[in-house]
Design a protein around this nucleic acid. Structure first.
Length: 195
DNA sequence: TAGAGGATTGAT
DNA sequence: TCAATCCTCTAC
């Protein structure tokens, strides 16, 4: 298995990257506890549309990581409870990112169960807040390279084009017309998708 | 410096 | 349908 090169992330078309991340494998290795899963659902965000934290190139203390060169993680707290994991894309100063919304567990399931305090694998990573908890990702990973020793993305399984579904993103009604952009991508009929 | 609200989730 | 929960941003 090979880790994705930085050149994968620094391309301009964030929606293309969001599509191509489907089937890739997100892995963490924390204190020797290695766990990971195949990415089955993503959402693209760009500074050019209202759904994005960095809309209009507005940089704040929270979203400054999005302005980094592609290939680092952007992790933030939502609703005071959930950590959200994003992949920063595009070149430095162009704040695009891809939110990872769901994984299919393929490695270290026992660590995920421990972190989730459950004994059932059912829907254990089917949502952006849950997959970060299952993999042990928190805000200390904000700004970290996706080829570091604790967190990386590598080649996974091949996903053919007609397996990919594109539809509107979730939970951003405030974004007006931009909320209807078909920038949410998922693998058709995968049992691990978020609801 | 106070107040409002959020790229969610799980229980009711 | 609603509460949990706390950081971030905006307005004063």
């Amino acid at each position: 298995m090979s880790v994705l090169p930085v050149s994968f992330y620094t391309r301009k078309d964030v929606t293309q990257i969001a599509r191509q991340l489907l089937g890739k494998k997100l892995v963490t290795n924390l204190a020797g506890k290695r766990s990971g899963g195949i990415i089955v659902e993503t959402e693209a965000y760009s500074f050019r549309e209202r759904g994005c934290h960095a809309f209009g190139n507005k940089m704040t203390n929270r979203n400054k990581t999005m302005f980094e060169t592609g290939g680092v993680g952007y992790v933030y707290l939502c609703y005071g409870i959930h950590q959200m994991f994003n992949v920063v894309t595009n070149k430095q100063g162009a704040a695009d990112a891809v939110l990872v919304r769901a994984l299919e567990p393929v490695e270290g399931e026992v660590w995920m169960l421990t972190r989730m305090k459950t004994t059932s694998m059912k829907r254990i990573t089917s949502g952006p807040g849950k997959l970060t908890k299952a993999l042990g990702i928190d805000r200390t990973f904000d700004g970290k390279y996706l080829s570091s020793a604790q967190l990386w993305i590598e080649e996974g399984v091949k996903v053919v084009k007609n397996q990919i579904i594109a539809c509107a993103r979730i939970g951003i009604d405030y974004a007006g017309d931009d909320a209807r952009l078909p920038w949410r991508f998922s693998i058709q009929d995968n049992p691990w998708l978020s609801k």
